[in-house]
């Protein structure tokens, strides 16, 4: 039974069916990261998918931007409790990137410039659920928000949408990534409030 906070009324209740439990709306776009923002020159940028077969799929910046892109309008939810509704992104669907990738593994580890990692089941990033985004609100993605390219997995808490991505490695087991080793939940479903473990 919750303790009632004497004198606390909270913000006016608005019907917000799009807001997961324990989240509040923000119009800003707060920044959360664990270390310095890496400076990435698109001339040096590449994105690589590695599998157990040893056959890598890789794209440089030019090749990546020649892939078909999709416009995505979606809500995003940060584990630190802000949510932002109706954000607009543009990027390459993971379905496109995985078209010719063969692997028997069910999990992925996403790797970023700067060393950040996050783990996901393959099921959570295929079938129109995830993108590598290069634009936010019609502009190239800025470095503090993960530019030149970041994961976008909007149905999970936003730490799964790794900034500054450089590649994906298939993994047999659901080994934890960076925040997952440092106290955050391995799945991160905002509708189930999978924040911490």
């Amino acid at each position: 039974m919750a303790v009632i906070s004497r004198g606390f009324t909270g913000r006016p209740r608005e019907s917000q069916p799009d807001l997961p439990p324990g989240q509040y709306l923000t119009k800003d776009f707060p920044v959360l990261s664990a270390g310095p923002t890496p400076a990435i020159d698109t001339a040096d940028w590449s994105f690589v998918i590695k599998t157990e077969t040893g056959k890598d799929a890789s794209w440089n910046w030019e090749e990546f931007n020649a892939l078909p892109k999709e416009d995505v309008t979606t809500d995003i939810h940060c584990v630190t409790r802000w949510s932002k509704l109706g954000t607009q992104w543009r990027g390459v669907s993971l379905d496109t990137l995985f078209e010719n990738v063969e692997s028997s593994y069910d999990y992925v580890m996403v790797h970023s410039y700067g060393g950040y990692t996050t783990n996901l089941p393959l099921d959570e990033i295929l079938d129109g659920q995830a993108w590598i985004a290069t634009e936010f609100e019609g502009e190239p993605l800025t470095p503090d928000h993960g530019g030149p390219a970041r994961m976008l997995v909007p149905h999970l808490y936003f730490w799964k949408s790794a900034k500054w991505v450089r590649g994906i490695t298939m993994q047999r087991d659901d080994n934890p990534g960076f925040w997952e080793q440092n106290g955050y939940h391995t799945n991160g479903d905002p509708w189930r409030e999978e924040r911490y473990w």
């Binding site: 923000t26 800003d28 990261s33 270390g35 310095p36 630190t80 409790r81 700067g114 060393g115």
Partner: peptide, 21 residues
């Protein structure tokens, strides 16, 4: 954090936490 890296600190040794919201 960016200046620290420019000054020669290894990015892995710089931990950051931001206040906002």
């Amino acid at each position: 954090a960016s200046w620290l890296v420019e000054l020669g600190h290894s990015a892995e040794t710089v931990k950051t936490e931001r206040f906002g919201g």
